[in-house]
């Protein structure tokens, strides 16, 4: 299942780098109903024993187990290890993607030279590299970082390339007519123009990084939430297994919410955020 998840998701539409849509107050009820139905099903289906027999515990016992686990320091240690891999990998991927993206984006020659290579390397699923990465980097957390950097780098790079292409010719002529040098152009024009795209790239990379941090631990056995899931599964602790799975879901949501909030505050000038927040 994770194999599918880690394939690079399709690139966001460059015309709408931040697909944030304002949600009307009236439509808030529908998602709540959806959540309620899901919760009820997650409780009733296992109790009815229709799927997997005893291997699928009802939601209430999974949640109870998760709460119990949260009082245990081993869970927090594993969580810390997973998040360290995630954060280190993400920072490296974003830094690399932004720097390389701006350089390539601003030099048409580099762009043409690298286009086909990028198109070949980008679709390689990071998980396909696991065996090679183990050979090269061993079974430490560094291997997880390498997987994340590989997958996240392309996400950010492609978005930055779109962002640099989005520079308004009139804005560029304005900057040039006022004698902006290369560094001033990047700082005052290229970077702010690309920023909404960078955010999209970072959000995509952050989700992929979480998938890969856990995949790496599951497959390689590096300590973390992933290996905790593997251990719980092999020792027959099905409720613990599902409690940890739910935890990874919560992590994913938190990561996404945090980045969206950062996006809204840093891009308050951008049309997509302006619309969502109303005129100020």
């Amino acid at each position: 299942m994770t194999l599918l998840d880690s394939a690079p998701p399709s690139v966001a539409d460059p015309a709408s780098p931040t697909p944030t849509r304002p949600r009307r107050a009236g439509s808030l009820r529908a998602p709540l109903v959806g959540i309620a139905v899901t919760l009820v099903l997650a409780e009733l289906l296992p109790r009815a024993g229709l799927i997997g027999g005893d291997a699928l515990p009802p939601l209430s016992s999974v949640v109870a187990e998760l709460v119990r686990q949260l009082g245990d320091s081993t869970l927090w240690e594993a969580l810390g290890q997973t998040m360290r891999t995630w954060a280190v990998g993400l920072v490296l991927a974003v830094t690399g993607g932004v720097v390389v993206g701006v350089l390539i984006g601003l030099a048409p020659v580099l762009r043409e030279l690298t286009a086909s290579t990028v198109e070949f390397l980008r679709p390689i699923p990071s998980v396909a590299l696991i065996p090679a990465v183990i050979l090269l980097f061993g079974t430490g957390y560094q291997s997880g970082v390498v997987l994340i950097v590989y997958a996240g780098f392309w996400q950010v790079l492609v978005q930055v390339l779109y962002g640099v292409q989005d520079i308004d010719p009139v804005a560029e002529e304005t900057a040039r007519s006022y004698h902006a040098g290369p560094w001033a152009l990047v700082r005052h024009l290229v970077w702010p123009t690309a920023l909404p795209f960078v955010f999209t790239g970072v959000r995509l990379a952050a989700s992929v990084a979480l998938v890969l941090a856990i995949t790496g631990e599951l497959v390689i056995g590096t300590p973390g939430i992933g290996s905790a899931i593997a251990v719980a599964q092999s020792s027959g602790a099905t409720t613990v297994t599902f409690a940890l799975v739910v935890l990874t879901g919560v992590l994913g949501v938190l990561v996404n919410v945090a980045f969206r909030a950062a996006e809204r505050s840093l891009l308050s000038w951008h049309p997509s955020v302006r619309r969502a927040g109303g005129a100020r």
């Binding site: 308004d168 804005a171 304005t174 005052h188 920023l195 951008h270």
Partner: peptide, 12 residues
């Protein structure tokens, strides 16, 4: 420039 909306930087 004629296109003031594009000549001014919206992030500033």
């Amino acid at each position: 420039f004629q296109e003031y909306g594009r000549s001014l930087f919206p992030w500033k």
